[in-house]
Design a protein around this nucleic acid. Structure first.
Lengths: 136, 136
DNA sequence: ATTTGTGCAAATCGTTTGCATCTGA
DNA sequence: TCAGATGCAAACGATTTGCACAAAT
């Protein structure tokens, strides 16, 4: 899916990022397992578990660089942590507050209709739908 | 609109909250000026400016108590701060990331259609639409 | 050689908590 | 009276930053 290191190196180059060891290894973690929602702490643990040596600071840097260059997206929820989404396509989320868990909706689900004009001099950069759910 | 102290006292009583001096004064700040989006720090400054003596800890407590009893709502954005909305009716928001500003959409604007079934055993508690906008 | 990235530890910032004191019913 | 509220300062947890060292072009 994205396992080929050359793919990852190219992906990073195309994004304008030097393919350092850390970035390539993190890209591998992030983009070789389908769509994921991760936090920095999350990635850090996983990296340690996988024997990948990357400091937490670098993980924060990397997640933000990936986000700035369009490889990741931040998910709009009022959690105390920041969630990054490896799926940058147009799709929305369920959010389980009690367990602080984010669940994808299939792409195409949940369209927003009847969107009002943005405030003067502004343009829409993204529309997020977040459906809070709880145990029935 | 809600300026009458008796109104506020009753509002608090109905919400199951003792109408303490701090709560009544904060309620006055929050609910006597139309719909507002505030942060704790926000309210704290405003209280000081208005000569209302309330500690920051109490403001946090109060905002959460008001939220739990339905007088306020938390707005779902990935900001580093928590925004509380004095309008608990069904409505959505624009969010200006650059200036960290939240703008109301008129109630009724932006409906979500084609919402998928919530995950197994879950039910929807709220649907939030947040439209990120930026300077054109 | 020069620029860019990394790691560490310290600093920051919003928010929460423990606990002694006070207040409303 | 006394459960519930408040205030203060310390604690917290996620994130950021400063700076010396290392790696990429």
């Amino acid at each position: 899916m994205m396992k080929n290191p050359k793919r990852l190196v190219n992906m990073l180059r195309n994004a304008g990022l030097r393919p350092t060891r850390q970035r390539v290894e993190l890209a591998e973690l992030l983009f070789s397992q389908g769509d994921r929602h991760v936090t920095a702490e999350n990635v850090h643990e996983e990296a340690q578990y996988a024997g990948v040596e990357v400091s937490l600071a670098t993980i924060y840097n990397t997640l933000h660089q990936f986000t700035d260059s369009g490889l990741l997206r931040v998910i709009s929820i009022d959690s105390n942590k920041t969630y990054f989404d490896t799926n940058t396509n147009n799709h929305h989320h369920f959010y389980v507050e009690a367990s602080d868990r984010v669940i994808d909706m299939p792409s195409g689900a949940a369209q927003v209709v009847n969107l009002p004009e943005p405030p003067n001099g502004m343009e829409v950069s993204r529309v997020d739908v977040i459906v809070h759910v709880r145990e029935k």
